[in-house]
């Protein structure tokens, strides 16, 4: 079967979505079913068939969802009703919509730094490579354990002020969303009554 010429193909739009909480591991197929379920329950089969949502890429914690041109509004409303994938609680934050995937990819791909050529001298000592840290990379060197409400938690994710923790052990595996200020306050001997 020959491929249709571009003028006869149906026009599509792509929506870039960020998955929260950060670091959640999902499979493309499962996410597709979650989005399709949300679309169908909200708009019904007939409208879902017109929207034809499809997950076309899942990389770097972002998803690109495809839909028919003109149905972006309906799809974005349906995306805001996605609350779980498999048994994991997730939230999809819409970032942008575009006519090409490439322009959306440029929004979340890490930009390459320009290479600077430096020739080491004869006395130079080779240093081991240190992984990039800081707000831009999404990871910071933090304490691996912290105390909160008299319980010990393990730090899962730390990005600038935001700290995600999970209780140590295997009984309660709910994620808590805190800030660095919370941990400083709670590790202090007295808890202030202000925010």
């Amino acid at each position: 079967m020959s491929v249709r010429p571009p003028t006869l193909r149906e026009k599509r739009r792509y929506i870039l979505v960020r998955i929260e909480p950060a670091g959640t591991l999902l499979e493309q197929k499962e996410l597709y079913y979650a989005i399709l379920d949300a679309t169908t329950t909200l708009w019904g089969d007939a409208t879902a068939a017109i929207i034809t949502p499809a997950v076309v890429a899942l990389e770097h914690g972002h998803v690109i969802v495809r839909c028919r041109r003109g149905t972006e509004r309906e799809l974005s409303i349906a995306l805001s009703t996605v609350t779980a994938c498999r048994d994991l609680r997730i939230c999809l934050r819409i970032i942008a919509a575009s006519g090409t995937m490439e322009s959306l990819r440029s929004r979340f791909r890490p930009k390459k730094l320009p290479k600077t050529k430096s020739v080491p001298g004869p006395d130079a000592v080779l240093q081991p490579e240190v992984p990039a840290t800081g707000a831009g990379s999404g990871t910071e060197p933090v304490q691996q354990e912290c105390t909160f409400a008299k319980k010990t938690f393990v730090v899962l994710q730390c990005n600038s002020q935001k700290v995600d923790v999970i209780e140590k052990g295997f009984k309660n595996t709910n994620r808590l969303f805190l800030t660095k200020d919370d941990l400083e306050d709670l590790n202090a001997t007295t808890i202030s009554d202000r925010i």
Binding site: K162, R175, L176, F177, L178, T179, D182
Partner: peptide, 14 residues
């Protein structure tokens, strides 16, 4: 927190 799973500071930040 403790009614939910996020501190008030984190909710404000978000």
């Amino acid at each position: 927190y403790p009614l939910g799973d996020a501190s008030v500071r984190r909710l404000a930040l978000e």
